[in-house]
């Protein structure tokens, strides 16, 4: 089964793209901007005002999934 994912109402501060929430593992959700791939821990970013940063190292599979989900969403 695919990891948990859902787009949020919140948008990336840098480029305005809707943020994607992704469950990397149990109790380990991140938010990632599908366009610029900046990311951060879910609670940290959304509840505590943390910044999205470039320091997340996504696996190739995860990166591919993010791009696919963004494409599916953008499709008419």
């Amino acid at each position: 089964m695919e990891p948990f994912h859902a787009f949020l109402s919140r948008k990336c501060h840098h480029c305005g793209t809707p943020l994607l929430r992704l469950g990397l593992s149990a109790n380990n959700d991140i938010v990632v901007c599908p366009a610029c791939l900046k990311a951060g821990a879910f609670d940290d970013v959304l509840e505590e005002g943390g910044e999205l940063t470039d320091s997340y190292d996504f696996s190739a599979d995860t990166r591919a999934m993010i791009q696919r989900l963004w494409a599916e969403r953008a499709a008419p």
């Binding site: 859902a6 787009f7 949020l8 109402s9 919140r10 809707p18 929430r21 959304l46």
Partner: peptide, 8 residues
């Protein structure tokens, strides 16, 4: 601003 999923 809500932290819930878009469309919730």
């Amino acid at each position: 601003v809500s932290t819930l999923c878009a469309g919730c």
